[in-house]
Design a protein around this nucleic acid. Sequence first.
RNA 1: GCCGGAGUGGCGGAAUCGGCAGACGCGCUGGAUUCAAAAUCCAGUGGGAGUAAUCCCGUGAGGGUUCAAGUCCCUCCUCCGGUACCA
Length: 884
Amino acid sequence: MPRYNPATIEPKWQAYWDEHKTFAAPRLPSPAAKGKAAKKLYALDMFPYPSGDGLHVGHPEGYTATDIVCRARRMQGYSVIHPMGFDAFGLPAEEHAIKTGEHPRVQTEKNITTFRRQLKMLGFSYDWDREIATTDVDYVRWTQWIFLQLYDTWFDKAQQKGRPIAELEIPADIGALGTDAARRWVDEQRLAYQSSAPVNWCPALGTVLANEEVIDGKSERGDHPVERRPLRQWMLRITAYGDRLEKELEPLDWPESVKALQRNWIGRSTGAEVDFRLAAGTNGEAVAGKFPEKPADGVLRVYTTRPDTLFGATYMVIAPEHPYVDRLTTAAQTEPVATYVKAASFKSDLDRTELAKDKTGVFTGSYAINPVNGEKIPIWIADYVLISYGTGAIMAVPAHDERDFEFAQKFGIAIKAVVDPGEKLSAAERDAVLAGKRVSPEAGVAVNSGAFDGTPTAEFKQKITAWLAERGVGGEAVNYKLRDWLFSRQRFWGEPFPLAHELDAAGKPTGFLRTVPETDLPVDLPHLEDFKPHGRPEPPLDKAPEEWLYPTIDGVRCKRETNTMPQWAGSCWYYLRFLDPKNDAAPIDPEVERAWMPVDLYIGGAEHAVLHLLYARFWHKVLYDRGVVSTPEPFHKLVNQGMILGENGEKMSKSRGNVVNPDEVVSEYGADSLRLYEMFMGPLPDSKPWSMEGVSGVANFLGRVWRLIVDERADELKLHELVSDTPPTADQLRMLHATIKAVTEDIDKLSFNTAIARMMEFVNFFNKEATRPRACLEPFIKLLSPFAPHLGEELWQLLGHPQTLAYADWPDFDEAHLRRETVDIVVQIAGKVRGKVTVPADADQATILAAAKAEPKIAELIAGKQLVKEIVVPGRLVNLVPRG
RNA sequence: GCCGGAGUGGCGGAAUCGGCAGACGCGCUGGAUUCAAAAUCCAGUGGGAGUAAUCCCGUGAGGGUUCAAGUCCCUCCUCCGGUACCA
């Protein structure tokens, strides 16, 4: 009668855990027990965005993995903190609000309620008292507080560290210009600053987007076209931290692929900046030994990673947006240049990349002087040079750069080889390169480079850079692909900035800002009747009531900043707030932070490999510099779970009709089966297809576990008659200890699929045994409980334990029980298995060899043959190799 | 193009300090139980040949190292993810 029925036992134990606050984490990890080191585990899941669709089966994959580790570690005596919350700002809620007229907060709260119910239904051991949503007014308060820290920080290049604005010395020449000039200069140094550079404006979404949110010229969300236009925006100076973000990646226990992705995104390159004097007009003379911070008037500065190819520069290119465009354009070229620049400005990113494989450009009519040889070379304008990278100008060396080569060929510009690639290429290819008929970016040996001929590329780079520096016309330089982070959005459903623009007596902005005092935080979102975007760049908050829009700060009438922060803001620091979610004096108590940080295990989807993880690391480093946190990096170990595909092997999506709903799986098989199945599917980081038959397979296994212990034929719940206090046999102990060892090690390696396989073997074995000693079953239930916690608790209780299993001692394994008296040795002849012998486990090589040769079949096969080799691997095999 | 990862039965996957390839599960086949079914239990299950003992072949392809290769080395192919005028 009492069949395994998850529908009754799962809600029972969930209610028990809730009521007893079984998984409440202490404020601080417990102090070390005698003779043992204090052990803490901060296991973090990437918190979900609570979409209207509810939980996806992809969510429980990573969540189950961390939960298993947490449950096992609690039993192993660790202090464990395992929180959950919601990343609740963002476009979908606002889009939904626009469609239905329902306030995004209402929608968000509904969705959170659904998510919370679904997460609880799966039996995760979260400390629910620590739940936070990024939209909580109390959370927003501290997100704004952190923004003010960024605003109050400048980056000291010498110390490679963010420091308070109060410690920033105003240079004398700036100070001499007056307080307004000084104030303006200070504002330019902040980590949070305003800029009006061209940005990615998406008319359909009514907002600008970060570079990271634009994919192939379209918005990541919604796939809408994105165009470039200049707008006043808030930027965060993440580039200042480029070096540290790259270098400090190295020691982290992260997948190599994620590290590579971040390095690639940061895109650090080293090379040289070189000043080219303009051939006409007044030119600032170079001062020997002093390469100026900013290029002198009449000098065109370029960045190159190949200063060794300077002698091969046959033209220069400036970006269409370069400030020298007008100055360099000669009267004769005015017309074509104006046309070209205008056309370029209309081009979206999409046009400039995807569609424009063909190089375009226009000659300015002007020339510059190559500093290494005094040659006069033409200056072109072309949109393959980006204003946002390096100096927005390049020297072009068509012989050794594919893009320059393509351009030079199209416009008939000279191609002069200055690097001999040597033997790397075939003789014909090499000749073609040297003749300027073929491009070769390979390193080699310098030619046509005056006194430097014969110098290998790497050495030449250093020599020429030094040579340039001596003459004050060049110097080493580092560049990053990483751009500053565009941090403002023209949307309603986000954190308001805690800033306001000063107004003068006439109500016009003075260009200066006032920060909202910390004591007045949070700046809450105002009530708006209409938060629809209107396709123009004025944010919806511009329509806020006057009393919100025009505060008086320090006696000065101001207009609030009406942009809002991007969705990333909240997820940049949630892992800190989890540790101290109710603190109303600080984002986090430093004592608590020091005790629990860093996050020991962070599991989530690979889609956050660049954006979220890079932004969070950046904020963390600023907070570290400002003394708010004690670790330079937030996440020690990172694991990306793989994608769960539909049964047809395709990505799950509504349009493909292959979405699996966790609610349905739980109602049919139970949460323990869902958890177990997701872990049994395959290695955590792999993508793998769903299979309902697979779910039923693991459900079947849990049923066998149930029947191993419960007498299913009895009328009421009672133990199976074979369960007894009989001492285990040696074979039973061996099976038990092999299982303990394997499961314990597999959990450490996050190899859950193999751990489950071992537990299945245990059950298959004991099903056939004549007795089922408690001494074997009880440790087994402990091993199983992190994977199937509801069933674990139920069986633990049935075995007579009144206390929850959550803190029972994890079983130890004893090598002594794993030993066998005898072992089977494979006997190979010429590498092919031809027989087996059984020998004592401690037999030496000679004994094993003798036993192998004595085995009748082997003896027959080797009879009369001369053995040229006899390999004996104790405990494993013997390989006899006859001649011929 | 570049960077990262992966190719093993009908399917998901085990096994990589080189040492019995296919653990475990699904599916399939046969059997027990049953009036019958469901459920459960037992046995078998890489391909080929053979009544059988047994033999041959087999981890994307081709070479190589080794007594021994899924595992190491070289060349190549395919798939997945990311990225792409960054000088």
